[in-house]
Every structure is written in structure tokens, then in C-alpha cells.
Write a protein that binds this DNA or RNA. Structure first.
Lengths: 203, 203
DNA sequence: AAAAGAATTAACCATTTGGTTAAATTATAT
DNA sequence: ATATAATTTAACCAAATGGTTAATTCTTTT
């Protein structure tokens, strides 16, 4: 890990905000520079091009997001803990960075290739999660089903409400921001309750 | 409903493709014109501005998407049918138009105001769905819970896997397109199976 | 058939945008 | 202190982009 200059950090933070809010195409280099209170040329001095700068931001965002679920496995004693931890940390993360889910989803959707390099260097092994779930099912700790399906369902329940926040806020909460916000906060408990029946009690 | 000229329809179809694939910011008027095999000036002749054209596309996309769930209620005899129908029609729709979910989510996210006018004129009443679910719970047909939560969960399970298709394909299916595709197709059954325990059997 | 109106095109325009450059300023090393 | 290297700035540039216009072709009406 190289030491980053203050300016570089300022740029990255401003770029993170602008890119996650407006996407690669919607973001303007000038706006990033303005938000970082620096000259636009500095962006190119430190990152060469818009795409390179974007890549840095995207990489950081993705690594803040995906590895969390693997971490949840490693730091949990059993499936129950795992589910609680994974759900809780995702809700916390997305409450804090509301634009993260839709940012990752839409940029991955537009340029799936970006994932390739990330996976190779990042050392992220997605298969471990599926194997873990399969294992827990074989051990009789989880209701038997396609582990991939379960994984997708858990992720769906955690991410979608945040990715679709604006939609939900308007269509289900009639535009009431506070209700919607507390609803999302509550999901830390309610997603778990929803998935609880899949956990097989010890006897 | 006014009669649309052939050219207008060509434009709308090309615009639909380009906008849903690349978003408002990423779309180029020239590309839309090229795909419709017409002169770029025609876009402005019929739709005045990029934003107006986008609005037409967005409106059509949204109306293809959201009202479906209300339709499912109206055309179903009971909750079981409703769930089956809603899930099935969403899976069909998104298999056919893979870019639809992420398109709607990201554009609503970027410009939530766009929903306002749509709701007013469209006559879409989101509250009906929540009321329907509440009613079914009161009737003892569905496990009692916050109906909003249930609605969000159903929508999450239906939409997210399509919105996150590229992510899932790469992270869970190791890039195997066919497996991922058939997995998504299978969700018509598997989402229903997943939600089935919430339906209370008649006695 | 001629006039009027609608549809279509090619050329053009102003602005925006990512990116560059050369000079100036600041920090570092000798 | 002074030379050297790193950082920062203002001015500039070429390409791209949404949009316009005036002329042309095609339709419709009378």
C-alpha cells in the first residue's frame, strides 16, 4: 500500500461522491475538482484519465461491499450469527452510503468486464460462500435448498430495498422520507425474522 | 391515444434500446438516430429534446413494470394465485427485457421527481397492493406481518436477481452465462417455493 | 395540376467536456 | 543557499454533443 498524498485523498473522496451519485457518464471532472477544491488538472496529474479515476473509485466501492459477506462467515460461530452479521453490516453500510448499491449494480451492468481484474487481484473467492451454505445444509443447520438460490435471496433482501430506495419511498411510503428511512433501518431485524424459518433449531 | 407515425415508432423503439442500455447520460442522440436509420434532426422534430424523448421512453418502461403487480391482484382468485402470477409475469418480463430493472432503478434514483408526474396521470395507486396484502393477512390467508415488508420482500426477490444479473453471473456462476440464465428462469418456481410457507393452507 | 403542409435531410452552431501544456509555486535534497 | 524535483495553476485545445436552420422531397388538399 503506497502512501497517498492529501490531495490524492481529497480527489478520491470527491470522486467517490460524484461518481456514486451520478455514475460514470453523468459525472463531470470539473465537478469533482470543485468538490475537492483543487484544480482540474490535478485529477489528471494523479489519475491520468477519467476512466482511471473511476476505476479507483469503483474498486474501493466494490471492496467495501462484496467481501463483507465473506468476512461475516469467517467471524461467525454459526449460521444464525452469520445471517445476523451479514444482514446487519449490509444495512449499516447502505444506510451510511445510500448510493453504493445502485452505483455498483449499474456500473457492473454497463461494463461487466470491470469485475474481471477486480476478482483476479482482489483475491475474492465468491465460491466460498456457496460452499459454506451447502455445508451448513448438509450439517442439518439450514433448510436444504439450492445454496446459490439462498445466497441470491439473502443478497436480494439486503440490497434491493436500498437500490430501490427512491422507488419504495415514493410508491410504498407516499413520499414520506422518515417512514421509509426507519423502515429500512428496521430491516436489520425484519430480514432476519423473514429468513429465520430456514434455520433449523438445535436439539 | 394519438396515432403515432411509423417514424415516431422507430424512434421510440431505438430510443428505448439505447436509453435502457446506456442510461440518460450515456445515451447519444446520434446513436438513437443511427439505430432507427433516420436523420438526427427527426428526433427533435418529433420529441423536441433529449429529455423529452427520454421521458417518453421512461414512462413507457415504468408503465410496463409497476402496474403489473396491481394487474396480478385483479386477475387472481386468491393469494396463492396472486403470488404465482406476479412472480411469473415479472420473471417473464425481465427475461425479455434484461435492462429494464436497472434502468428504472437507476433513473428513479437519479431523478426521483420523474415519478411524480407519472403517478398523477398514470392513475397508479400503490397503496392498493399494501391494502390487499393486509386484508389477506386479516383473513388468515397469509402469515401476519407488516404488509409493506412483505411487498418489499416479494419485489426484492423478483427484481434484484435481474438488476444484479451481471454481478450474479460473474460472482456466483463464475461467468457461466447459460447456468445463470437458466437459474433466473427457474426463479419463477423457486421464488414461489421460497415464499410458500407464508401462505396459510385452507382447512 | 398547383398550392399548401408535413416530413426529411445535410450542413451548421454553440457549448460542454476530457484532456494538455507551459509556466509558476512549493517542497526537498545537496 | 541553490539546484532539483514535485506540485499546482491558468489558459488553451480538439473532439463530441445536443440542438438549429434552411433547403428539399414527399403527401395531401383543392
Amino acid at each position: 500500500m503506497e502512501i497517498k498524498s492529501d490531495t490524492e485523498k481529497l480527489i478520491l473522496e470527491a470522486a467517490r461522491k460524484v461518481f456514486t451519485e451520478k455514475g460514470l457518464d453523468g459525472a463531470r471532472m470539473q465537478e469533482i475538482a470543485d468538490r475537492a477544491n483543487i484544480n482540474k488538472a490535478m485529477l489528471h496529474y494523479y489519475f491520468r484519465s477519467k476512466d482511471k479515476l473511476f476505476e479507483s473509485v469503483f474498486k474501493a466501492a466494490f471492496n467495501e461491499f462484496w467481501p463483507e459477506i465473506t468476512k461475516s462467515i469467517n467471524e461467525s460461530a454459526n449460521v444464525e450469527d452469520f445471517l445476523k452479521r451479514a444482514i446487519s453490516s449490509y444495512v449499516d453500510l447502505f444506510m451510511d452510503k445510500p448510493f453504493l448499491p445502485i452505483f455498483i449494480l449499474s456500473e457492473v451492468n454497463r461494463t461487466p468486464d470491470r469485475l474481471e481484474s477486480l476478482i483476479r487481484e482482489g483475491g475474492v473467492n465468491p465460491h466460498l460462500i456457496v460452499e459454506y451454505l451447502k455445508e451448513q445444509m448438509d450439517l442439518g443447520k439450514l433448510k436444504a435448498m439450492d445454496p446459490k438460490e439462498l445466497l441470491v435471496n439473502v443478497i436480494s433482501l439486503c440490497i434491493f430495498p436500498f437500490a430501490g430506495k427512491s422507488l419504495i419511498e415514493r410508491m410504498i411510503f407516499q413520499g414520506d422520507k422518515e417512514s421509509c428511512e426507519s423502515f429500512l433501518q428496521e430491516r436489520k431485524k425484519s430480514i432476519y425474522e423473514f429468513l429465520k424459518p430456514l434455520i433449523i433449531a438445535n436439539n
